[in-house]
Design a protein around this nucleic acid. Sequence first.
RNA 1: GCCGGAGUGGCGGAACUGGCAGACGCGCACGACUCAAAAUCGUGUACCCUCGGGUAUGUGGGUUCAAUUCCCACCUUCGGCACCA
Length: 819
Amino acid sequence: MADPNDANFYNPADLESRWQKKWDEDGLYHSDIDPKRPKYYALTMLPYPSGDLHIGHWYAMMPPDARARYKRMQGFNVLFPMGFDSFGLPAENAAIKRNIHPKTWTYANIDKMRGQFRSMGAMFDWRREAVSSDPEYYRWTQWFFLQFFKNNLAYRKMSPVDWCPNCNTTLAREQVWGDDRHCERCNTPVIKKNLEQWFFRTTQFADELLDYSKIDWAERVRVLETNWIGRSEGALVRFKTECGEEVEVFTTRPDTLWGVSFMVLAPENPLVNKIATAEQKQAVTEYVNQALRQSDIQREATDKEKTGVFTGGYAINPVSGEKVPVWIADYVLMTYGTGAVMGVPAHDQRDFEFARKFGLNIRVVIQPEGLDALDGKDLTAAVPAYGVMVNSGNLTGTPADEAKKAAIVFVEKLGVGKASTNFRLRDWLISRQRYWGAPIPMVYCPICGTVPEDEANLPILLPDDVEWKPTGESPLKLHPTWKDTTCPQCGAAAVRETDTMDTFMCSSWYHLRYLSPHYAEGPFDPKEYAYWMPVDIYTGGIEHANMHLIYTRFFHKALHAIGILPDTEPMIVLRNQGMVLGEDSEKMSKSRGNVVAPDKLVAQYGADTVRAYLMFFARWEQGGPWSSTGIEGSARWMRRVWSLFTDPASGGKPDPEMLQSIRRKLHQTLAGVTRDFENLEFNTIISALMELLNELMRAKQAGVAYTPVWKEVLEIYALMLAPIAPHMAEELWQRMGKPYSIHQQHWPVVDQAAAADDMITLIVQVNGKLRDRISIPVGTGDEDARHIALASDAVQKALEGKQPRQVIVVPGRLVNIVA
RNA sequence: GCCGGAGUGGCGGAACUGGCAGACGCGCACGACUCAAAAUCGUGUACCCUCGGGUAUGUGGGUUCAAUUCCCACCUUCGGCACCA
């Protein structure tokens, strides 16, 4: 039986490469505008061209490929493109290590990966490939930058920014991770530097980014992003100081305003110098210097004891007229709110610790319901709960549910404050001091100042001849001539911006470039946009929740505001796959030695088996550990499917009841597989097909194979297999004498009548415990079911002569007898 | 500390709307085929048991005729945020 020369032997290596070649030649997976068919844009996150596809890429791409194929069979005109996010640091690091040009390294990797992609049997339309480091691509990345600049959505400012000392570049706030504040790429803890950098006004769209009402995005992503954006509602309140300067604070608890017993400024706050008195100046300066020397990690450690210094100055509480001391302390951050807070020690734990440490007054102004009357002197911790206002002037007695609003109305009436909303989200820092990225198309002119490059001059090409050793300065700055240019406005000698753009800029709009990757009149062809956009389903890793996924939505919202895009959302549905772990249930890594290499698996089992196993082994959105014995099960299934179609069947008399039951199982399975494909529940698709196969294998030995039903069975089985194992399905389809290609066939339609059960198993319980199962016809009435159940011997025995007190009948399912 | 997810056999995992817990697969055991092995096929496989049954979905409560599913508290674990006013 296992003779490789036998035409009936399953030989994936042979048939997979054969069909891949044919599909390629025939352009089977080309997607072109077709107004007669509904479109479906299925998008999977594009990879960085590291040079090797790992099993994680397969997991991210193959189940979505199967679903895209299924959608196509359903009659949709499906666009399922692929490309490369090919700018970025690893190319430079490889160049430094091996002395290869980053461009050479990148494009060699892309070539290799295209070949690997082909071996997957995916339906990518390669004519639509987009490569972000191609000048015809980054020309438009630069063009988008200019649109942002011209519409005041890009700006340059000097500020303390996160710097990765290993990558030698600044990072966006989103790229700094964890409690040690490390670089997302290389895990090195970042440091702060004061630098002039380019930013995008992402914060301007914070509220819009929080609105998910028009899109169906995975809940966990929405939660992560909502936390990240960090909206809080409150009020801005201005306090006058004795020196004449005003200090504005943001508070979420305006109801506690009468409890202010001090104020605190961030050490970096420019007001510090003005408010500090001569006697305190030295102490203040010392504290500020010490705070600036500390790293963020030291400074922001929450378990650290509070420190601070009195400025000598006083502020006036605008609601009570009371004089309160102004302090500086490093627990107040310059980067959030106004860089100053009002100290309400009775109702804020941080303020409480500060007040206790420095002997400041603690006054209770909120009395939560159900607690004994509070007294500041006795408190051991702050009481943040809401409650009735006390000791609060004419607002005393205001109940909890009105207190906040009433306080805001009050400060508005006094003209010292207003309602306000604050976000944790920061503007997106996009400058990078590295070579392998799109140059920022700006020019610094001694006469005109900061000037955007002419759109006609795009792309501003990256020079090939650079020294890319990392110095902390952009390699473009060190190039002898590249930065020299003339001012686009006045023609004077000027210099270019030498930083390049964050690669997240490139990936914020690649889904638009796929529409028309060689279009020269704009970033995308509007005709293609009108037909294909928005993306119907977007899939990828969840690690991008607070980076790429926020940025790409920002792009759409900003470009919509400018009038370039008609939509405010790029992707309607978002789903995220889990991670394939090593066999030891740990994250795969070279150092652990638990890495699974897909190329080897394809050589050993064929792509179809790898695809099937990736769909089967875990819930796709959850992921799980790889199993090298587990994949044997999928390989076995493939071989059994093969033999179902190709091995001779035994004869015999077909039993009509069996034929009916086979058709029922077939159409029930089809209904389940269809539903599961819609819901991306890939693992149960495979198990349903395995279950059906098991039944078919038995039927085949019972004479069913020589009936018309068997033809229907094989046809539908092959069609259901087509999205999962495209090569084998095509081969079997051909051997059945069906017209090429199976991938152009329509998804089979469920025969509801055939799928309907005629008998059901009635579950009979006594006091909730299973006592009997009785087969009864579908449609048996509740009364009949009740009688049948009560007549059961097992029930009578379990009742032990007791009378049923209650009988619950769930139609078509179950009878529960309570005695 | 705050926010969110997850805890089901030896293992990966099923269970659509509160209604048969453990589908499907791996592993294991036994059997068939074989000189033998591999492959393949078949049978069995949660736990306990006095063979009547009994107990089981992280733990403890609750709601219900009925809970893996709903509610409350807790434990473990994973992820995110964290002196964000």
